[in-house]
């Protein structure tokens, strides 16, 4: 009996497909959206468009609820910031002052050019969002960007 024949598998088609998949996922992935908290169910607006020019510096403030799997609100509203749930009345002291101090480290003089990006849940009381804006103004933030979800297929 002779030696068993060595079977060589041609890997080329598999590598082709794997590279295709890899390229697809690399193109589709959106790292910016990784900051967005999934608990915040944004309101829908057909007029809201992604900004043509991304601001150089921004502070993201997200306000929403903890919900059950059914979508029912369990508790809140909370400001979601760096993995913590902060009561909205404490956002000025625990978030905005810190962000302002951080900004001032880089820019000791002048107006604050940083844009406050507000991602607010559609069920949050409007007054809470207004108070949030007021708190930002107290810390000299004057530029805001209100996030909304574009309609499906829009």
């Amino acid at each position: 009996m002779g030696e068993p024949a060595k079977v060589e598998i041609d890997m080329t088609p598999m590598i082709d497909i794997v590279f295709q998949l890899l390229t697809f996922f690399m193109v589709v992935i959106n790292f910016e959206a990784a900051d967005a908290d999934e608990r915040v169910k944004l309101a829908v607006s057909e007029m809201a468009r992604p900004p043509k020019v991304k601001p150089a510096e921004e502070v993201m403030v997200q306000i929403g609820f903890n919900r059950a799997k059914t979508g029912k609100i369990k508790n809140g509203p909370w400001v979601f910031y760096m993995g913590k749930e902060i009561p909205p009345e404490k956002v000025e002291t625990e978030v905005l002052k810190r962000e302002k101090a951080f900004y001032r480290l880089k820019h000791p003089e002048g107006e604050i050019e940083s844009v406050v990006v507000i991602r607010a849940d559609g069920d949050v009381p409007a007054g809470q969002v207004q108070k949030l804006i007021e708190a930002c103004q107290n810390q000299q933030f004057t530029k805001f960007s209100l996030k909304a979800m574009q309609p499906e297929g829009g």
């Binding site: 589709v28 959206a33 944004l42 992604p50 103004q137 530029k143 805001f144 209100l146 574009q150």
Partner: peptide, 16 residues
């Protein structure tokens, strides 16, 4: 990967 609808925004300037 998270397939979701795009987010848009409204820019608002609210001076002090």
């Amino acid at each position: 990967l998270k397939l979701r609808a795009d987010e848009g925004d409204f820019s608002i300037n609210m001076p002090l």
